[in-house]
Amino acid sequence: MFEASLAQSAILKKVLDAIKDLLNEANFECTDDGIKVQAMDNSHVSLVSLELRSDGFEKYRCDRNLSMGVNLASMAKIMRCSSNSDKVTIKAQDDNPDKVSFIFESSNQERISDYEMKLMDIDADQLGIPDTEYSCVVKMPSAEFARICKDLNQFGESLVISCSKEGIKFSTSGDLGSANVKLAQTTDADKDDAVTIEMRSPVTLTFACRYLNHFTKATPLSSQVQLSMSDEIPLLVEYRIGDMGCIKYYLAPKIDD
């Protein structure tokens, strides 16, 4: 038997909204430790790695390891049927289930709804993500990052991110012209709108804006975003999910010919 409850449906709704436009389907791997999802987008340019730890659930029971093939658009539709304050319970039989149930209970207990979703057989490879010591790790307000990716995408398809000890610079150019946004490291590091940079060595990388604008769909999950960069390897964009997990987006860089 697999059964997991969250006191508030809001967090799960935001998680689905953060991945449903980038991924069509994914395997939800359920174990004692929690729920993990790892999947590439269709073009194999980006990879999403999601983790929801069991101790972050109000109730969590996973008698046997379980893999559920989920169509994310369908799950997002079901999640949108819940109110943010509803308690949500996910239930599935653990001997190779072909469906999963979602039960939403309103906070005043007057409304209980349940949705059953068919599961799919998804034979997706799992990728090994090597541990990496990044040259630059930048923490910044997630709304700021979302704003930059959205604004600069109007000027060009590619975003050049260069990071040094002075700060982080986002640049683009196209038919319209060019645009640059420079953020200096802030002094007061522990405020929510702080920009902090841990730099081992300067980096300059180029990425396709469209993927970054998919990643920023996770902005409602966290007020901060962390960008980890080293030359010639994928960018890591990380949003924490409360104190129960995180969502990591990896984006392969554009390499000069």
Binding site: V45, L127, I255
Partner: peptide, 14 residues
């Protein structure tokens, strides 16, 4: 111009 690389050239299938 710059060419988009694939994530699978950095992360190997298990």
């Amino acid at each position: 111009s710059s060419k988009q690389s694939s994530i699978t050239s950095f992360f190997k299938r298990k």
